[in-house]
Nucleic acid binder design. Structure first.
Lengths: 146, 146
DNA sequence: ACTTATCCTATTACTTTAGTAGTATTTAAA
DNA sequence: TTTAAATACTACTAAAGTAATAGGATAAGT
């Protein structure tokens, strides 16, 4: 019952970019250094985030990434969905009910699943950015890389 | 981001036993047949549930299992904890903050983790039993094994 | 004694995960 | 217009986790 590293690193990337100067792009190299994620692994993560439009760049050398146009309105769930299919905390929830062996258990998992999904949808990248800014001000930005 | 089969089957077992006649025990064989879980795998699951006191029996031949004395007050989280250590949707949440690379991300995961845990603690075995009874009455107990 | 059932550990096949590697393509700069 | 930096995308691999089976030890009912 864990989120994998792609989702976790992806979230950190998005916050990093949300905090960055939106007028100039940020290179993979720079994100990699700041977030301590290997260049090649980050490459995959950025590829996924770009595919869903959460981040943008122009191709080729030296362009750099910036947050996508609609990305500030995006939520943690959108970021999650860049890497995974729809959340399903157990398999077979959408199957025919009669195939299940316990109605109450099935209903419980469905409820929990929605509960988690709702939480992930309720927190936007903007919310996270604000929290990060608050923290940076409190600590003079010394303790964290961002 | 999935619950494993031990937790899922464990939940079904607990509901099965909660629905059963509390005066007589239920054999592994019987649970296995009703819930369609292999005897040997169920053996492990029952062993775990017994270790945490959620189910009880007297040893040896033909005793059968029944719900533990305090088990009706127990929650989904208690059942989960029979198989897993404390819920942690990402690793390293309890580590020193300065080792993290993004404050806002870390805070987010902590909140989500508590959110899930709270949900799991808010639903008791009794709640699930009531739901199961309601369902059985509606369908005349035909569609589900329990 | 014998059989049935539980107790508990070990093992295995399989899948997933985390990360590396490599090659092709794009484009800024020399 | 070469060249080198950077991204784009696929393939691969080692390690870890999962689902399940196997098997011997022990306990009791008959």
């Amino acid at each position: 019952m864990k989120f994998n590293t792609k989702v976790r690193y992806g979230l950190r990337c998005m916050i990093e970019l949300a905090m960055a100067d939106p007028t100039k792009g940020m290179l993979q190299k720079e994100i990699s250094r700041k977030q301590q994620i290997s260049r090649k692994y980050l490459d995959q993560i950025i590829f996924a985030l770009k595919s869903t439009g959460l981040i943008e760049n122009s191709a080729g050398r030296g362009s750099g990434y910036k947050i996508g146009k609609q990305a500030e309105k995006s939520t943690v769930y959108d970021i999650y969905r860049s890497f995974e299919s729809e959340l399903a905390v157990v398999d077979g929830l959408d199957e025919d009910e009669t195939k299940n062996h316990c109605y109450a258990a099935r209903e419980y998992w469905i409820q929990l699943n929605e509960h988690i999904k709702d939480h992930m949808k309720s927190v936007s990248l903007n919310n996270l950015k604000e929290r990060q800014i608050q923290f940076s001000q409190q600590t003079s930005g010394l303790d964290y890389v961002i």
